[in-house]
Design a protein around this nucleic acid. Structure first.
Lengths: 224, 224
DNA sequence: CCACCTTCTGAGCCTTTTCTGAGATCTCCG
DNA sequence: CGGAGATCTCAGAAAAGGCTCAGAAGGTGG
């Protein structure tokens, strides 16, 4: 993790302020950029509007329960990985948490080192290879924000163009609804058509076929 | 879980044959398709040559250690999710396992239910987009609003076409009266013949035989 | 301060989908 | 066979969804 590589962004939703403070500090030391919420409602708002690489969510939360929070995020097509923290460590709790959409479940009290290791495991997925994401015949260079064409030619992308293409390339063949691309790549206050515009920019730079439109549903890359 | 969707494929690398047998049975019951290896070398070979959705790897393996196995797979750009099983439950072991490239780490002895829940959490991401309804020899891809023909060819449906076909496919062989299709799929204010029109569109795209007319009663799919 | 790049907005145009309705065709049954 | 009602087919209008792009606003580096 050298040059201008952006820090991983973490959303921390934990009502115990003391624990939240400690975790925030720990995460900061590890080089994460952390946003914190102390209840589910606030967590939902941040989760829907912000852009995060991982979320750490306490199971027991005021206003909106942790699992309910996950359900609402998933319902709004937020696919960010979630690690659930919980004092409830019974088998049924763990299974319930995972089946509610969590990607990992850590029982309190836990060791800081294990939390960090599990965060790394979750975060690794999105950085995968840390080099390039496949893009049909071409590839997306994650370090340099460039598309590498088969012949070796390189096309530089602007920040937003890159974020959009990376989001699409992370789950090729999946259909990405405009709404989720908009919340994941752009600020929530942007106009409705911002995604269209950037898809247009990508197509203008990379060719008509990089991004496929699925009428009424969203955009897709790497279609069969 | 509907049929028509392909089963998840699991690679199980475990040298304890008794445990391996039990797990294989458990996985089969859950609808996974399992390949088993009893040492790291064989696991590496299968992992490099086969296509799996998830791998379950014991940490202690003859010939080639579990973590070494993961390292070699990762070195060859195999990014399949890995769940490590281990009798070594110390903090340093867990952290080491996760940092070696495992996506989850479960300490023996473990509960079958938790293993399954964690497998589901790992597999969920790749299965996204794979849910289908059977449609005779073909299948209806619920995420992409496409009909997948036996040869793999895909035909995309518009929103209404998809809703209509899905409604029919949800209860194959049942006779769906026009009136109920109309209220379920279309606005109440639409004309009486809207269903006929959309059945016509479906038949035009998919062939005369997808939808059968039962004179005076309604439409039917998947007749014998 | 200027030149250049990126981000974002919004308006106009184009494409696809949805829906209507009317004539052609079919089915059932006397 | 013939007629009534059911069903099929399809053209075209209206609406929804998507594309293109010019230009404003803001940032960055020379």
């Amino acid at each position: 993790m050298h040059d201008g590589a952006a820090k991983s962004r973490v959303l921390l939703v934990e009502d115990d302020r003391e624990l939240a403070g400690m975790l925030a500090e720990l995460l900061a030391d590890e080089g994460y950029e952390t946003d914190a919420a102390h209840d589910g409602q606030r967590g939902l708002h941040l989760g829907l509007t912000g852009r995060y690489d991982v979320m750490i969510i306490d199971r027991r939360l005021p206003v909106l329960d942790g699992l309910e929070l996950i359900a609402r995020l998933r319902a709004r097509a937020v696919t960010t990985r979630v690690l659930v923290l919980s004092a409830l460590g019974e088998l049924a709790d763990r299974v319930g948490g995972l089946d509610a959409g969590a990607d990992d479940y850590l029982v309190k009290p836990f060791e800081a080192e294990e939390l960090l290791a599990r965060l790394r495991a979750l975060g690794r997925r999105d950085m995968e290879g840390a080099e390039c994401l496949p893009l049909g015949a071409a590839a997306l260079d994650l370090q340099r924000h460039e598309v590498v064409l088969p012949r070796g030619e390189r096309i530089t992308l602007s920040g937003r163009e890159f974020e959009l293409l990376r989001t699409l390339a992370q789950r090729p063949k999946a259909i990405h609804p405009r709404a989720s691309l908009r919340t994941n790549v752009f600020a929530d206050s942007t106009g409705e058509s911002i995604v269209d515009t950037y898809v247009y920019y990508l197509r203008r730079k990379l060719g008509r076929d990089v991004v496929r439109t699925v009428h009424g549903l969203g955009y897709q890359i790497g279609a069969v």
